[in-house]
């Protein structure tokens, strides 16, 4: 006999409260399922769109070592995209559908990737600031209630912390390098600081649905709490390499011991979300073109696979 939805919901909540992971075949509220699909696909899309601003510098990386590291890093992002799409598929939606949602503009990806990478220092700034901010969010998500997502996140966090360190290492080399390199580093920090602060999402008084999602352990911490942790961690790193954070109002709050930042330009944030960032159109076009230009390749692979089944051909 079908259990009452109220009983199922109580059992579901009790599992979460005990720290038991929810697995693909377990009962879950529709809202929980849909919220996870939205979050996981947004995360997956961010990984693959995020390959583009960094991929922009692979062919121009300034040394063999930097080129190898950047190639490996961007390859990691593709890998993250792949297992996040796979994790999302456990919720009953397939990768093709998720990609269609990205290409039609229905699904979103992180606003930060709509900013351009103008100099080599931007590659340092992305690893240091963007991956640094993302890790703050992701280490929390690794403790989330949905098993496949939290397990994917454990692995992603390990790789992201390497990315974060390589970014900071690039910034160190530039900040301790020639005058021109130091300027390049400061300019990148100036351009990426506020977008990185904003990518952690709207402030708490402007972020709906948080209470239920926290109770379900889909969302683990409020946007402002994560933002505060990121700033506390990053400011001393900037100080150490002699770069200035582009926020004249930034100061330690003596009462709490945390940094307090100046006003955030949320108008810019919502504009970028709406599609008006410097690279929204080109990023999406690049993804759509890759998909369209690859259609005949995927069709050929399917046609060949079908022929092999008929021929009972297994040697490859």
């Amino acid at each position: 006999m079908q259990k009452d939805e109220k009983v199922l919901l109580e059992e579901f909540q009790s599992k979460i409260d005990k720290g038991v992971k929810i697995e693909p075949k377990d009962w879950m509220p529709l809202k929980y399922r849909n919220q996870l699909i939205r979050m996981m696909s947004q995360h997956a899309h961010s990984e693959i769109v995020g390959m583009l601003p960094e991929g922009n510098w692979i062919t121009r990386a300034p040394s063999l070592r930097r080129k190898a590291i950047l190639l490996a890093k961007v390859q990691d992002e593709a890998g993250h995209g792949m297992y996040l799409y796979s994790a999302a598929e456990t919720l009953g939606i397939d990768r093709t559908t998720l990609l269609e949602q990205l290409h039609s503009g229905k699904a979103k990806y992180s606003s930060i990737f709509n900013y351009p990478t103008l100099t080599w220092a931007d590659i340092g700034a992305i690893g240091w600031l963007v991956d640094g901010a993302a890790i703050m969010n992701q280490t929390a998500l690794a403790k989330g209630s949905y098993g496949p997502y939290s397990r994917a996140m454990v692995r992603i966090c390990k790789e992201e912390s390497f990315h974060n360190r390589q970014g900071y290492e690039i910034m160190c080399s530039l900040a301790f390098g020639s005058q021109e390199q130091k300027q390049m580093a400061q300019d990148a920090l100036n351009r990426w600081w506020w977008p990185a602060i904003m990518m952690l999402g709207p402030s708490d008084d402007n972020s709906p649905n948080t209470e239920e999602l926290m109770r379900w352990r889909v969302k683990m911490e409020s946007n402002d709490a994560i933002r505060e942790r990121f700033i506390d961690r990053t400011v001393p790193q900037a100080d150490y390499i002699g770069l200035s954070i582009p926020d004249p109002e930034l100061k330690i709050d003596e009462a709490t011991g945390h940094y307090k930042h100046g006003p955030i330009n949320w108008e810019e944030f919502f504009n970028v979300i709406k599609g008006n960032g410097p690279c929204n159109k080109s990023r999406l076009k690049t993804r759509v073109d890759a998909d369209r230009n690859g259609k005949w390749v995927r069709e050929a692979a399917e046609a060949y696979a079908a022929k092999r089944v008929i021929r009972d051909d297994t040697d490859f």
């Binding site: 693959i48 390959m51 583009l52 991929g55 692979i58 062919t59 063999l64 080129k67 190898a68 190639l71 490996a72 961007v74 390859q75 593709a78 890998g79 995209g81 792949m82 799409y85 690049t286 073109d289 890759a290 230009n293 690859g294 259609k295 390749v297 995927r298």
Partner: peptide, 27 residues
């Protein structure tokens, strides 16, 4: 490496960058 982010399927983005990375190591 020029293919990175433009492959016909995500698996090929990974494969092409992987081969590129190996060849860079050889060089």
């Amino acid at each position: 490496a020029e293919w990175c982010g433009h492959g016909p399927i995500l698996e090929e983005d990974i494969a092409l960058t992987n081969v590129s990375l190996d060849l860079l190591g050889h060089a």
